[in-house]
Amino acid sequence: MSREQKQLLLEIMQYSFALVETNLYLDTHPYDERALKLHNSYSQKYNELLSLYEAKYGPLRYTQMSGCPWAYINDPWPWEIDFDVI
């Protein structure tokens, strides 16, 4: 996996995790506008990065469209990626 692809994937994971956290916070603080602003900025960035990645490297989600053959099953799989070496 190229360095650039791995870096992009890592960034997606970072924003994905941040969204889990803001989601949990907002579940108990639904009127917190600052948290909402934060959540929405992470969401926008997350969606941006995701479409960028999928356009370049293929679908990350089974819900995405694919050319033929079905690209979702191409390597690498998450357990094959060494994130210690970026």
């Binding site: 995790f17 941040a18 916070y25």
Partner: peptide, 21 residues
Amino acid sequence: PFQRLNQVFDPKEALMNGTLF
């Protein structure tokens, strides 16, 4: 206690630290 949003880690740090807060 009921948490109040203050500062947060940036996403990179948050993933490493296991929390945004």
